[in-house]
Simulated scan of single mutants.
Amino acid sequence: MDKLLESQPGWVDSLSETRSALARLSTAERVADVLRTHLIEGRILPGTRLSEDTIAGALAVSRNTLREAFRLLAHERLLVHELNRGVFVRQLTVDDVIDLYRVRRILECSAVRATAQYTPGAVARVRAAVHEGETAARDGGWQQVGTANMHFHLALAALSGSPRVNELMHQLLAELRLVFHVMARPQQFHEPYLGDNARICGLVEAREGERAAAALADYLDRAEQQLVHAFTAG
């Protein structure tokens, strides 16, 4: 059964909070970025039908602008348009999971190896994401732990110093967050990786890029296996 936008009012309300950021530049790209961020943070579920009127009203943008944003996100494989039914958040397959992790290994492991590209600010963002996840776990906010994990991997990719890598990682992780919803017990899934994140962060801070990349590759292998199992078991 489709998950109607109206059944998840919380994330629609949070769209209204972005109006000030859109006020100066209400472009389709910026609207797409707002929606992509909501997907990365797990606020919009796979299968959700997106109402043009409701979202355009929440963001105070035109329907034409919103439609162009939808087209951009559909190109990124985050949304699908179903004839005579509307626009929906995409529901991924096990093949999508395998391909996402294939690309993540290329981007993230290469980024952590490139120690010559590290900047103090980029390394600090990795540590900040680790702290974010640990704080959310202490508070029992496992949805927030998942969001912090997204921030951690974005920060790892950002070690490369490449705006193009950053952009691609945002797209990949928005897709990945749609995959995470298959895990029925988020604490059981996310909790073991908190320690891994801290260890990889320590290696990054020590500029031991090869060891960090090896630890990350093992990490990604385990996460992929868990998600593939969840998809096939379901």
Rank of each mutant, 00 (worst) to 15 (best):
17 E>G: 10
195 G>K: 12
138 R>K: 14
153 H>F: 11
139 D>Q: 13
108 E>W: 02
172 L>I: 12
220 L>I: 12
8 Q>I: 13
172 L>P: 04
46 P>K: 03
115 T>M: 05
227 L>V: 09
208 E>R: 15
77 R>G: 00
21 A>M: 14
117 Q>N: 14
187 Q>E: 15
160 S>C: 04
187 Q>P: 07
55 I>T: 05
176 L>V: 07
24 R>E: 14
174 A>E: 06
226 Q>H: 12
66 L>C: 06
219 Y>H: 15
13 D>K: 14
150 M>V: 10
150 M>T: 09
148 A>W: 02
32 A>R: 03
6 E>A: 13
186 P>T: 10
147 T>N: 04
150 M>W: 00
31 V>T: 07
29 E>N: 06
109 C>N: 04
137 A>H: 08
200 I>F: 03
166 N>R: 15
134 E>T: 00
216 L>E: 06
133 G>R: 08
73 L>W: 04
37 T>Q: 11
15 L>A: 11
65 T>C: 07
149 N>G: 12
212 A>P: 05
144 Q>F: 03
57 G>Q: 04
94 V>L: 05
123 V>T: 09
33 D>T: 10
27 T>S: 14
123 V>Q: 08
220 L>N: 07
209 G>R: 01
96 D>L: 01
221 D>M: 11
174 A>W: 06
170 H>V: 10
222 R>T: 15
128 A>P: 06
137 A>I: 01
20 S>Q: 13
175 E>S: 14
48 T>W: 00
77 R>S: 10
19 R>Q: 15
157 A>P: 05
98 I>H: 09
58 A>V: 09
206 A>S: 11
117 Q>A: 15
